[in-house]
Amino acid sequence: MYDCGKIAIIGGGSWATAIAKIVVQHTHQLGWYMRREDRIDDFRRLGHNPAYLIGVHFDVNELSFSTDINKIVDTYDTLVFVTPSPYLKNHLKKLKTRIKDKFIITAIKGIVPDENLVCSEYFHQVYDVPYSNLACLGGPSHAEEVALERLSYLTVGCSDNEKAQAFADILTSDYIKTKTSSDVVGIEYASVLKNVYAIAAGICSGLKYGDNFQSVLMSNSIQEMSRFLRTVHPIDRNVDDSVYLGDLLVTGYSNFSRNRVFGTMIGKGYSVKSAQIEMEMIAEGFFGTKCMKEINRHCHVNMPILDAIYNILYERISPQVEIKLLTDSFR
């Protein structure tokens, strides 16, 4: 049976904090890379992340913090990356230590800009990490509900099922159920697209479209996602599984969804910039929309929802006009 060895978290946000809570309850020892020394100092003093999920308390004696990513990579065997996708490259630029022999798990629900690659493909192409050492973490799981120990379901994707199962076993608890999958790329793309569709759901909510229409929007969203996944990664998958459809639904409907909140503000008349400033948190779907639009220029998949959200966010077309055109295309 594969042994994940010593595990470290790369990132300091809410999902990173939630994953750290799950893992350290099993391992009682965890490395943790955070960019800011003052944030680490406050964490040690307070016993919780000073900026995210402040109700989650840790035994800081079980945590080994560092602002030096090379020290973390040198010391730990399994690295769980949970940084916002637009900032991943800046963190990795500091690397002087090779990571190809590490077990890399990406819990980043976004695409690396410029290269327009999902994170596993980026690690493979740029850092020569073999696919057998690359995994992803997906599923309908808001960090806030994990923090409250509400029942959640996670999927660990990896081409090496033994490694996927080993990490799944570490995550499993009374409130976390797990399964494994070999569809790493599909899970990653689905994680990006569901954020785009959650922005769409938020915009429609801000425009006062009701629950009847929202259900049609979600139905069309899963069909659009399925078309794209069949094109870019044509394997046998069931998009009704929780890691695809379940993640889409919770992100599209939940008040914990920052992408839905961001979309709702746009629907109510906020500019993109003012919505981002007021939220004070990153809505991954904003960046994901642009990346997916650029990727689909080569894939030529029929994606009217993606196109509509791109037009609203980047071409400044009126949400009222764009969503009305979109509704006319639905059946």
Rank of each mutant, 00 (worst) to 15 (best):
R150Y: 13
R150A: 01
R150S: 03
R150G: 02
L151F: 06
L151T: 00
L151Q: 15
L151A: 09
S152P: 00
S152I: 03
Y153R: 00
L154M: 01
T155I: 04
T155E: 06
T155C: 08
T155Q: 02
V156Y: 09
G157T: 08
S159N: 12
S159C: 15
D160L: 02
D160V: 03
D160Y: 13
D160I: 10
N161W: 11
E162L: 13
K163F: 11
K163I: 04
K163V: 06
A164V: 08
A164G: 14
A164E: 00
A166M: 09
A166F: 08
A166N: 05
F167N: 10
F167C: 14
A168W: 10
A168C: 08
A168Q: 07
L171S: 13
L171M: 15
T172C: 02
T172Y: 09
T172Q: 15
S173H: 02
D174K: 06
D174V: 05
D174Q: 06
Y175H: 08
Y175G: 05
Y175N: 11
Y175C: 01
Y175S: 04
Y175D: 07
I176T: 04
K177E: 02
T178C: 08
T178K: 09
K179F: 11
K179G: 10
T180C: 12
S181P: 01
S181T: 04
S182P: 11
V184E: 04
V184T: 02
V184P: 03
G186T: 01
G186E: 00
I187N: 01
E188M: 14
Y189G: 00
A190R: 03
A190P: 00
A190H: 04
S191L: 01
S191Q: 03
V192A: 14
V192K: 09
L193H: 09
L193K: 07
